[in-house]
Amino acid sequence: MKNKISIRMSGLGGQGVVTAAHILGAATTLDGKFCTVNPFFGAEKRLAPAESYVRISSEKINERGEILSPNIIMIFHPHVITMGKCYTMPFFDGLHKNGKILINSDEPLDLSQEELNKLNQLNAKIYYVPATRIATDIGGTELSTNMAMLGGLMGISDLVSYESIQVAITERFDGGNFVASATTAVLDNVLKSKYNEIAQLVESNMKVMEEAASVVKEFNFASSM
């Protein structure tokens, strides 16, 4: 399927990788697109590798399981790269030509010359966004890192509307139908306890996203080749 966009999100348990994928998936569905969302994790533990796979298309999606050739890779934590905390090695394995990589880091990471060469050959674009810092400064909690990463994604692509994202966040946290795993439910409660009402949580997270979208920065290959 030519118009299918595959997004691989790699992070650490507790960073909200699964939740980010869920919100993105629910929002694109609201926009009338087809979407599937797959989380993939081993034991449910904080700081263990956690990945989510989001496929978005204008047609029905068949393929399932992990995404082996993503169009977009989102790295929620530098350790995914520096400590190999992901299910693919190297972290950009399978990236499409002209693919995009969004990394949560205040400063560009020290990628090896070999990795930079390969990425350059793929004509890949690397973007950095200080997602955890924005989450802490603007959202008031590290738990909004995933929202800042979604903001970064909004800044580098045109996959989904802010309106649908806002509805998806509200539905996700406003009790009702959503089913969270036990560990996710614990983090949900911590997050909700920081706000008096869901409306505040949504508003704060939308601000986090908008800020991240505005500061996401493309890495200049030429400067380091």
Binding site: H22, G25, F34, C35, T36, V37, N38, F40, R64, G65
Partner: peptide, 10 residues
């Protein structure tokens, strides 16, 4: 498991 149980789809 996972491919169906944990995959979100319409």
């Amino acid at each position: 498991g996972f491919f169906v149980t944990h995959t979100r789809e319409t």
